[in-house]
Design a protein around this nucleic acid. Structure first.
Length: 439
RNA sequence: GCCCUGGUAGUAUAGUCCGGCCUAGUAUAGGCGGCUGUCGCCCGCCCGACCCGGGUUCAAAUCCCGGCCAGGGCGCCA
């Protein structure tokens, strides 16, 4: 089949804008063929563009011969442009259809396609990711990424309105930031460098300059985890604020959660319907469970943990059954938190760190930070880290570091919660995990 | 790093336990033909697969061993 040039054709309407009121008007629509139903003397083509779908109807007796010939050789997923007349028609979907006068074939699709975009013959996640560009055309994928967009937009609006400055910090770094998670080494000319696991240290330093900052950017973890909630490259929503404590930024976090849920509920009704999912707007304040209370609850559920022990996955799963929505876990033992989390003044065994949970999954974590240099150096050493490798970070504490607090949200985990999607890879366009590096 | 499960047409599956009427079934996609109101259109015909290597056996999709690939879980981590 020959491919036509776009020429002077320009789209006059999106498919979604084709309504019965346009009856008789000539329009040009462009998009991809979702499906074709050929009844012999009449042919129906469902055309999909970024905003929706419209039916193209080709009755043999009423369509120009050239257009008829072209329409007979079309396939699913071919990219076409239609110049035609809108016709109000009760029998058509949405009560409207387009009768083509002229058809341009702009791009052709090779058949058979690797997956069925209509979703009637569902493919495994691995097959879908191998054919990701095609897979992203499905109603399901379109709904997920529309919601993702709305969440990012709402987050930026919310933080911006509250005076936070959006920043971007380096993703190629010289040495480990927090300890803990494994880093990906990269060859940086003649030196070794690493991909940043978090913007933590940079955003704290920037507090001196801007007081309230946020960053929405990638974070890299070289963990060998292979589960439905782990990827090696994810997007972290990070905030840091001066002159506040954990409780202040917890309020900010829960208000953001409430705002996001409200916006998604309002703006993404159709998408939530496609995903057969419901989002409830949480009532504030969210529950705040202390680490000790969590231990007590788990003990009652038959899971016994020593004080100071981290909560294993089984524990979180059990906890998620009792608390199926949002809640905080506060008052964590200091030893379970990174060096930059502030120990309580009246009891240094317990920290001012918190986790924001949704059911059994950790959505965010944060806390009041250590802002006194000597304490920070002490904490570094306690965690087996070397102050020398934090030279520049520590230096910033000589320039009037204010008390501050902040948190980081795992965007993908939040999207999982908002879409009901069970595999984190489905909410990332081109996910990276322990075994997948392509496409 | 450890553990479990699986790999059959483009896709999704049946068959695998307990080897043999499997010349590998079904759906969908694809090809051809028919059909003027479909909207998971319909009808007929056709195309197309046992992950790779070795072994056991008269006989292997089926049992055994190794490899590769994939999914899930634990630990770690967000």
């Amino acid at each position: 089949m020959e491919i036509d040039d776009l020429g002077d054709w320009r789209r006059t309407h999106y498919t979604a804008d084709i309504t019965p009121e346009l009856d008789g008007q000539e329009v040009i629509v462009m998009g991809w063929i979702r499906e074709i139903r050929d009844l012999g003397g009449i042919r129906f083509i469902v055309l999909q563009d970024r905003l929706g779908k419209v039916q193209i109807t080709i009755p043999e007796s009423k369509v120009d011969e050239e257009a008829l010939r072209k329409s007979s050789s079309l396939h699913r997923q071919d990219c076409i442009a239609i110049k035609g007349i809108v016709r109000g028609m009760e029998k058509a979907p949405r009560g409207v259809e387009i009768i083509p006068k002229e058809i341009k074939v702009l791009g052709i699709a090779k058949h058979p396609l690797p997956i069925d975009v209509t979703g009637r013959t569902p493919a495994d996640i691995d097959v879908r990711l191998d054919a990701r560009v095609l897979d992203l055309r499905s109603d399901r994928s379109q709904a997920i990424f529309k919601i993702r967009h709305v969440v990012l937009e709402a987050t930026r609006n919310f933080l911006s309105k509250r005076g936070f400055l959006e920043v971007n910090t380096p993703k190629i770094i010289a040495s480990a930031t927090e300890g803990g998670a494994a880093l990906f080494p990269v060859i940086y000319f003649e030196r070794e460098a690493f991909l940043a696991q978090s913007p933590q240290l940079y955003k704290e330093e920037l507090i001196i300059d801007f007081e309230k900052v946020y960053e929405i950017g990638p974070a890299y973890r070289a963990e060998k985890s292979h589960t439905r909630r782990h990827i090696t490259e994810f997007i972290s929503i990070d905030i840091e604020e001066a002159f506040v404590t954990a409780e202040d930024v917890m309020r900010l976090a829960e208000e953001l959660m409430q705002f996001i849920c409200r916006v998604v509920r309002e703006k993404c009704k159709e998408e939530l319907e496609v995903l057969n999912h419901n989002v409830e707007v949480p009532k504030l304040p969210l529950k705040r469970l202390t680490y000790d209370e969590v231990l007590d609850e788990l003990r009652e559920l038959g899971i016994k943990l020593e004080w100071g022990e981290d909560i294993p996955t089984m524990g979180y799963r059990a906890l998620g059954k009792v608390h199926p929505y949002f809640y905080f876990i506060i008052d964590w033992p200091t030893r379970l938190k990174p060096f930059y989390i502030k120990p309580k003044d009246d009891n240094p065994e317990i920290s001012e760190g918190f986790d924001l949970m949704w059911s059994w999954i950790e959505i965010a974590s944060g806390g009041t930070r250590v802002h006194k240099k000597d304490l920070l150096m002490k904490r570094l050493k306690e965690q087996g880290l070397h102050p020398e490798s934090f030279k520049y970070h520590l230096q910033s504490f000589d320039y009037g570091m204010p008390p501050h607090a902040g948190w980081a949200i795992g965007l993908e985990r939040l999207i999982m919660m908002l879409t009901g999607i069970k595999n984190i890879r489905e909410v990332v366009l081109f996910p990276r995990d322990r075994f997948r590096l392509t496409p």
